[in-house]
Design a protein around this nucleic acid. Structure first.
Lengths: 328, 328
DNA sequence: AGCGTTCATACCGCGAGGGTATCGCCGGTG
DNA sequence: CACCGGCGATACCCTCGCGGTATGAACGCT
């Protein structure tokens, strides 16, 4: 019933997104591998089709209009959806199927091997490819590059994803062994606020500075250039010159297995079930009390959608297909 | 960094979706308003680009392959995202902004007028357009036709939406006044299972048979052709020949206000906040004074003529700007 | 004023996309 | 079993949209 579009093609969206990101027709055209005039015309055509001005441009500067802002945001989402469709279709067409799991090194609470061996013992287990990424795992699941990802619940943005809790743990501050606070039995966030050092994860929403690898961060900490607040399970793998001190009032972190909303893959459902069970049996200990998932908020990046105490809750869904019973 | 697509255009996706839905090139072509040969070639081109066979066709029958299934699903989502982007951009470009709220007649627990008047009293309240739709409200929010929708939480699919709970209520069975069970003080789902009548909402996930308007359903029930399990608030508006009997083990229903995940609209955020607060304050004190609201139009309009059950009807509610009580 | 930068316009050539005609295949049928 | 009808694929043509080059117009800078 619904044709789905209005003659707006993905190419045009990609063109607009490029211009909106560069705010410069020449650079955008170069990035797109085309000349500048066709790009100008494409934007004009798009504006004509939408019946709205998208960019305020005065031959000296380019700025987004209100409509342009929304098209940038929505257009990115639409392009991501298209390329997710393409990727997932390609993967579904491969003759030898497999699962791609995105993980973050040193951040799986040593659960990864447990999950993998448990799943491998499953009747129709597929091969599982692991890809490591420190800060793109959510995007990888969303755009079809990965089938699932291990992520940290309140810290990372889970909008658009379905997920299953694996393990909730308290957080510790990672400090140099000789740091004044390192001897304390427990800290508070206020203690760290008084530290002159940059703290990680930092609140900065823009991609100012990201840690490509946790080893780098640990090195920085050892050098006395930063402190970090991380899930307590990383204490097990800390360098000898670092210590982890519990932070009493740091919100607990939940390791979750996330996958694209509405996935119908039977294999994925089996993997999720298996991972959840593996996590449950591997950590039979009833977790550290406060499990409150009250504000599992969307706004990891940028400001949260509704600005006042408004909380955006993400729907928690269960894997679609009915997974087969038994996990090894 | 990510171009966003692979040269796959929305037109091609729409073409494929049409064929996949019709499973017939000729009909699909007719539906798309093009001839059949170009459609065949477009599908072939798409298959070549994706490197996968999407349809198994033997000049007598057309069937989806595994990859085709996923492209149908994902492609629909991608097309919805594109048209959502277009619609939202168009709306953002309009000079006189407004909010579009999708509601279901007779299913708002009489909360709609409360919410509307409360929001209208807000400082920068926008005009609110109400569109009624019995079973498409989620899709309307997802694809940008509406900014928000009143939905019922466990009953309706909220994936891809952010939402805020407004009101949780128990469910009642609607029965003809002379029905044997109508005299009972309370029922169980098992009682209804033993009924030979079709029960609504039915479990059938496919769009076998949908009730375009609740009046039709009520009529069917009065005729003794069906029974329904609905939120207890509809008892207030039941026909005289029907009664509502509590169903003890029916899961409670939550009326939620849902909006697109990641919306950045300030107006929407204000509306959501206001609705939540209105619901909270309206609840403890059941309807008394505000029933005679002049603005009752929204909740009262019930007889619009949707011919094929598909059409939705709009009613514009301008903020009269009279009522007291601020919302923030 | 001259120059460089930047977006818009003019004009042109090519190829993708659509149309018509037809073929090949298959299943039903008298 | 030959014929017909329906369907998707192929062949061929044509148009128009997209991209390229050249140039114009507006603006900032020196």
């Amino acid at each position: 019933m619904n044709a789905g579009d209005d003659g707006v093609e993905t190419r045009e969206l990609a063109y607009f997104v490029a211009v909106a990101e560069e705010l410069h027709f020449g650079r955008a055209a170069r990035r797109l591998g085309i000349a500048q005039p066709p790009l100008s015309r494409a934007i004009q055509r798009l504006e004509r089709r939408l019946g709205t001005r998208l960019l305020d441009r005065d031959s000296r500067t380019v700025a987004l209009t209100e409509a342009g802002e929304t098209l940038l945001r929505e257009g990115r989402a639409a392009l991501a959806a298209v390329s997710a469709a393409v990727r997932r279709t390609r993967r579904a067409g491969r003759s030898e199927p497999s699962l791609v799991l995105a993980a973050k090194p040193d951040a799986d609470a040593d659960l990864l091997p447990v999950i993998l061996t448990a799943y491998a013992a499953t009747p129709d287990a597929l091969p599982v490819d692991i890809v490591f990424s420190a800060w793109e795992r959510g995007a990888m699941v969303r755009d079809g590059r990965a089938d699932a990802a291990l992520m940290h619940a309140p810290r990372e943005d889970l909008t658009g994803l379905a997920f299953e809790d694996l393990l909730t743990e308290a957080q510790v501050a990672v400090l140099p062994r000789r740091h004044p606070l390192a001897a304390r039995a427990v800290l508070s966030m206020a203690d760290l606020d008084r530290e002159p050092l940059p703290r990680w994860p930092r609140a900065a929403p823009d991609g100012t500075y990201r840690m490509a690898e946790s080893g780098h961060l640990m090195h920085l900490i050892a050098l006395g250039r930063a402190v970090a607040v991380v899930p307590e399970s990383v204490r097990a793998n800390l360098r000898h010159d670092l210590v982890g001190v519990p932070v009493a009032d740091a919100p607990p972190t939940t390791l979750v297995l996330a996958w694209p909303e509405g996935s119908r893959s039977r294999a994925l459902a089996a993997f999720v079930r298996c991972a959840a069970e593996a996590a449950r049996t591997a950590r039979p200990a009833p977790e550290t009390a406060h499990a409150a998932q009250a504000n599992r908020t969307a706004g990891a990046a940028q400001e949260p959608a509704p600005q006042n105490g408004q909380t955006t809750q993400t729907a928690k869904t269960t894997p679609a297909g009915l997974p087969p019973q038994g996990c090894g």
